[in-house]
Design a binder for these strands. Structure first.
Lengths: 358, 358
DNA sequence: CTGAAAGCGCTTACAG
DNA sequence: CTGAAAGCGCTTACAG
């Protein structure tokens, strides 16, 4: 029978040391798997640790200089599957390496982002992985994050800095992806191709439009400014804006969309106008969210593999934490792959015959 | 010009105190908004804190007894939209209350769950919100979590305990939901209704089957054991198992599915057999994932509002942390709402005329 | 309203 | 291979 007395006091290194007839220092060495400790001693200590249900106190360790095992992960919105999968990948890879994830989300607000980061910083993260809110300012971020903390920026460039403001940067190959999407439509014979959705001033939209222009230019097509339709990157907005595509005659016969949400909204908007994606208008999205394959028609899109990006982001950060990364900030560009489905298979209505097979 | 010398040392309370000509104790009181401090002093300290870019050290505070502002959130899989939205809700509500989220995921493995929790415990969370892996054992959990930490179990009962093993429990109204779904199909005239998918030994499957049986019993229908088809809760498995519904003659004309993934898989499996949900077989899902509305036909399902559940879970936990919750562990059951869409609209093939309108 | 002192649980040199 | 001592940054009584 163990004593039924109330035990509110925490089990500490001193308790273990006393029980083993050792000093705290030795027990501490066991905890850190130091080879200095004799194997028998180590075993005895381990057993006692287990027996008393010892719980390591990271706070005390980090206070003394033990180094943090926490990494802060800040995303825009976890309810967005793109970020949710990214976060899942980050968390899994970090946990595997013995790190703990401190989570924060910003809802695309730079103000909340500052608050969230400040709050997370109090927990002494060893590093930060940040998918910045739109219009994040590099200088403001540097003020909360300091000069010395390893930071990895994901998915979006920062304002007021070339790219990631001196931090590591994992980017999607937006430009290439949009180019491939546009080439796919060109190969199907389309000539009048719109770029639909997104905000002109967001860096990802800018890059995607760039790839779209590249492809058109390479095909010798002068892009009609009316083919660039802006709208908020949500399904509803996109559905409302669908009409803007047909304001001018001749209207485009296909659209590369800023993302899948916009593409699905556009398909709904087309349907409301008696047109149908995949039969009389070709649509390509960006992201490959789960609904893309389930939509009807299934959505041709660019897969960004957010979960793999999360794992990649975590691994890049772990390499830096282990001193295995180059001293200079690195920019890594992750590939993006075209998934051809039904929504882009509409026969071209263009006057030219199809150029080539995709 | 400030001095360009390297400043690697952290700014501490002592620095602020020295700069203001005060003691650390007074500065500490300012940090905690104590009314003891004179307003002018407070203002001076605040300004200096800002000027020197002071960052509070939670670890040191918690060491001394300052209390933690972290809450551990452990889910099965963040890549699953249900949990992602739940996590988003939890994180938002916690952040609003000044708490930080420590994230972990288990991938449905009780072993990883133990490890993840042990790792998070080292950061001294003030509480834990846990959506347990299948077959989580209450006693093992108690060993990592201890006796004194507030814990909220979400979504699933624990093994080896009545419900949540003495902890707070936020449950979905699985039984009621499945009953409503079954009643919906009965009202459309169906008599031979299957319960499709899920593992018999999971608590949520058990509860949902219970509601299904309740509805059949209330309608005076004896459930045919062949109508209970088990399968892993994934789309692929469900598609493979679809045939099992038609092994016996007469076959069911409708199915209540364990969840949306299973329902969508079943719809695919039906299509492969030349049958179509919504025209010659009625299907109801559970969860209302994003794809449900986008599927074709759109899936009738039970909305669980995971994001709202997350907010609710966080609020329940915050109430407990503030001592506003009842002393005894509480079980809260969250409602679930039927969303009628096309997949359940098939005309009944039963011999009886439709009973009533839904 | 403010200060001096003790101590939370750990790790890091430094001895031995 | 192990121990004694100092100190990380904070908060909490206790004085004044």
């Amino acid at each position: 029978m163990s004593s039924p007395a109330p035990r509110h006091r925490r089990v500490t290194l001193a308790d273990i040391a006393a029980a083993c007839g050792l000093s705290k220092a030795t027990v501490s060495l066991v905890l850190r798997d130091s080879p200095l400790v004799h194997a028998d001693t180590r075993a005895r200590v381990r057993a006692e640790l287990e027996r008393q249900g010892y719980v390591y106190h990271r706070g005390a360790a980090s206070l003394r200089g033990g180094g943090s095992n926490a990494v802060a992960l800040v995303v825009n919105d976890l309810a967005n599957p793109f970020f949710a999968e990214f976060a899942a990948g980050v968390d899994t890879a970090l946990a595997e390496a013995g790190y703990v994830t401190l989570l924060g989300s910003t809802g695309e607000s730079p103000e909340r982002q500052q608050q969230v980061l400040a709050s997370l910083m109090e927990h002494e993260p060893a590093a930060v992985i940040l998918s910045p809110a739109e219009h994040s300012d590099a200088a403001r971020l540097r003020r909360v994050l300091g000069e010395r903390l390893p930071v990895l920026v994901f998915n979006r460039a920062l304002d007021g800095a070339d790219g990631a403001g001196g931090w590591d940067y994992l980017a999607l190959d937006n430009r290439h992806g949009a180019r491939v999407a546009t080439e796919h439509l060109l190969a199907l014979g389309h000539r009048a191709i719109a770029f639909f959705g997104g905000h002109r001033d967001s860096s990802s939209c800018h890059e995607r439009r760039g790839g779209y222009r590249d492809a058109l230019a390479a095909a010798g097509i002068a892009a009609d400014p009316a083919w660039l339709v802006e709208c908020a990157p949500t399904r509803l907005e996109a559905a409302h804006q669908a009409g803007a595509l047909f304001a001018r005659d001749p209207a485009p016969t296909a659209a590369v969309c800023y993302n899948d949400a916009v593409a699905l909204g556009l398909m709904a908007g087309l349907a409301a106008r008696g047109r149908h994606a995949g039969t009389d208008f070709a649509v390509v999205g960006f992201d490959d969210i789960a609904e893309a394959a389930a939509a009807s028609p299934a959505l041709t899109t660019l897969a960004t593999a957010p979960r793999e990006r999360g794992v990649q982001a975590a691994r890049l950060m772990l390499a830096r934490l282990r001193g295995q990364a180059p001293a200079l900030p690195q920019k890594v560009t992750a590939p993006v792959t075209l998934r051809v489905r039904a929504s882009s298979q509409s026969p071209s209505l263009s006057i030219r015959a199809p150029g080539a097979t995709a």
